[in-house]
Amino acid sequence: MTSVGAVVRDPGSSIKNKTGSWRTFKPTLDKEKCIDCGNCILFCPEGCITKDYDIDYDYCKGCGICAEECPVKAIKMERE
């Protein structure tokens, strides 16, 4: 059934939809090279990079913005 007025009472519930399956290229982050600038975290359209620079592959669509914006090229995009 559809709720009255199609109201969704479960905030943030889109996490049920794992968009990681969309990905063709997978980013891998080399923490040795990382200088903790935070660019990848800020610029991720999914908001799926943690403050410890762990990428949540359940949601990463593989857009490649993080790799592009990394000033020290610590992120590599590889075909899955």
Binding site: V4, G5, A6, V7, V8, R9, P11
Partner: peptide, 13 residues
């Protein structure tokens, strides 16, 4: 159902 930061809902989905 109503807009309340203490109990967030999405209306008009």
């Amino acid at each position: 159902s109503y807009l309340d930061p203490k109990n967030p809902m999405s209306l008009g989905t």
